[in-house]
Amino acid sequence: MTMRAISQNKSISHLKKGEVATITGYVSNEVPLKVYEMGLLPGVVFTVKQQLPFNGPICIGIEGNPNFVALRKTEADLILIESLS
């Protein structure tokens, strides 16, 4: 199975609070397994709920999941997105 072609270079960390986006792919193959396990998979739609100042972790809400997911900026950089808002 191949990963979806990287069509653009926008990652989760480019988004602002309240923005909605969908995941299109990943920057490298070295993305932690947890990313996939948490359901951050291509096609998934999510909203940025909050980001802490000084490049702190980002909190996102995946559509249909009442639990939020927190990730560091370094992980957010690895996940490519397409903005929907």
């Binding site: 070295e30 932690p32 951050l40 639990n67 997911v69 927190a70 990730l71 370094t74």
Partner: peptide
């Protein structure tokens, strides 16, 4: 190992 933080924040 790369250090990472990916964590679920439950309701």
């Amino acid at each position: 190992y790369k250090s990472f933080l990916i964590m679920e924040m439950p309701t």
